[in-house]
Computed example of a mutant assay.
Amino acid sequence: MADVEIRMTGPIFDGRAARAMAEACRDARDSIAEFGEEYALALMGAAFRHPTGYYESNVKTTVVSADTALVDDGGVVYGAWLEGVGSRNSPVTRFPGYIHWRRTKALVAARGPAIAEVAVRRHLPEMG
């Protein structure tokens, strides 16, 4: 009878690949959230007619879970009115809203996969 010894080495077996992938996921989440926050603020800066700075100062990114980050206005009471989804928007008044969050959501959905791919590619050398 012969003994056979099998040794498995490398990033997959010693945990380096898993750690690199977890870091790539965090990097992708943070990069996408940063893009969303910057884009929303840029839209607000370009559209708001009489900005006070208060609303924009409340726009923040919160990490909700390992794979989720939330960009929002922190619940500012007139945020829905600015977006155009409040009870005091058109047709009640002439103000239709700026739709900055809906535009941001659509752009993040469209560009998110490309942003995530860049983040993952940055971490590929650590996996191999």
Rank of each mutant, 00 (worst) to 15 (best):
G36N: 12
R94A: 00
A46I: 00
M44T: 03
G10L: 05
P96K: 09
S31E: 15
A46G: 08
A109T: 10
V120E: 04
A33R: 05
M21T: 04
G79C: 04
A40Y: 02
P11E: 09
I6V: 15
A69L: 09
A46T: 07
G45F: 03
A33Q: 07
G10E: 10
N89E: 07
G112A: 01
A17V: 03
A46W: 05
V63R: 15
I99P: 08
G53F: 04
E83Q: 08
G84P: 01
A2E: 08
F35C: 07
M127L: 08
D30S: 12
N89I: 00
R49D: 06
F13A: 12
A42P: 05
F48T: 14
V71M: 10
R122N: 15
V120K: 06
D27R: 11
V85H: 15
R88Q: 13
H100G: 04
T62S: 02
W101L: 08
D67K: 11
S90F: 08
R29Q: 04
G15W: 03
W101H: 09
E83M: 07
R7T: 14
E5G: 05
T93D: 00
D14T: 03
M21S: 11
G15K: 11
D14V: 02
Y98V: 01
V77I: 10
A17I: 04
A42N: 14
L43T: 03
H50D: 09
M21G: 02
R103M: 10
S87D: 09
T93A: 01
T62R: 13
